[in-house]
Write a protein that binds this DNA or RNA. Sequence first.
RNA 1: GGAGAGGUGGCUGAGUGGUCGAAAGCAGCGCUUUGCUAAAGCGCCGUAGGUGUAACAGCCUACCGGGGGUUCGAAUCCCCCCCUCUCCGCCA
Length: 422
Amino acid sequence: MLDPKLLRESPELVRAAIAKKYLEVDLDAILALDAAWRAQLVEVETLRAKSKAANTEMAKLPKGSPEFIAKVQEMKAVSAEVKAREAGLVEIETKHKAAMLSLPNLPHQSVPEGRTPEQNVTFATWGTCEALSPVAKPHWEIPGFDKIIDFGRGSKVTGAGFPFYIGDGARIVRALLQFFLDEAVTAGYTEVNPPIFVNAASATATGQLPDKEGQMYEAVADGFYAVPTAEVPLTNFFRDEILDEAALPVKRAAYTPCFRREAGSYGKDVRGLNRLHQFDKVELLKWVHPTQSYIELDLLRADAERLLQKLELPYRVLLMCGGDVGFSQAKKYDLEVWAAGQQRWLEVSSCSNFEAFQARRAQIRFRKGDGKPELVHTINGSGLAVPRVLAALLENNLQADGTVKLPAALVPYFGRDALRFG
RNA sequence: GGAGAGGUGGCUGAGUGGUCGAAAGCAGCGCUUUGCUAAAGCGCCGUAGGUGUAACAGCCUACCGGGGGUUCGAAUCCCCCCCUCUCCGCCA
């Protein structure tokens, strides 16, 4: 959520910033709503003050006295009017709040102009994409692939996009997760194992609700949502809390399975491990001092990049242009790994600064030296998502003998230096 | 799932219809005094919104788990829900 005061005092600044994201927003309607809400608020509060003053007076009068009885009669009318006007106030307040929740976060000034993914800026590259594997092919075409990752059985048991991992397939998933978590802890993140269902308040705080409920699986009977990312339970850990300034930055990492309905995203990039409804991911998250958030964003991105470097996977870093920065983010980098078989980049991490957008919704604050609470900034990024990393490993490291050679960093976790199919 | 007890400010904890935004203690902040790793005394000390201000201040309103209700008036009474604890049931 945006700072209502900023919107009120600098609407043109907000309008320009939203335009940079190429999002349609009726700002004038929201401003009108804001003005109407404040006018009604003043009316209701004036009435309340009147009845409150009368009540204080009445408390001093003898209960059955004529003055008392007269006052009761008089105040009955005021009370009724308060009630009537409160109803109108609640109505406009609800609209106003919904409108504020519909406003996206403003992009940071360092976000490049642009409307489409093609206009994202290649910020950095690492490794070389050529001559990775002479026998590289899309991972789903590797002989024996379905012996270790079984989409057919997953589809029977649950549905499309819910594969079984078997044997070395299951083992490599576990090895990657453990590697990711160990690296995160080494980098100073505290490991957390969070709930994988969250309530509506949590999903609202991080920006999944309202409007994006169609992207989450919902346990209707209980009002819970299956987490689309560990970001949701992790960020909400401190919801409605005030942190110590000295404790910042707070750094945490969590593994969870992630559940995404991916409604409307069926298309060319859904084959194999490229896009799943359930996948494993380690998420890195920081609660930071507002003055430090862009430094901390770079540090977090470096933490994610280091994983790819240790896995010896070529990758590039994209700085997302205004049109491709998400609804809640102020700035976003994507890490994309090269998949030699598909000859394409696969997004494996998205590192974002939300500034105070989530913190305001979630009321996560810290107490400053002068004692006043102030909103923190939240930063998060994958570190990393398993299936696409696995896809790149399978494609880039495929050997002529049909096995997949594993990078040295993974060998202690996997227990062998090569993965076999079947 | 059943029965009982409870949810009050950063923490502990009073408060069963009006003078309660809420005693007291702890923690924190400021001042004073004495002074060797500290003690005593005094004062201040919730959050949010609105209004107001150059910015403070001030003023107003709301908030005692959440939501409704009764009443001129609710932390206090009634209803529903959530959560915590104890016991029972079930269960990895």
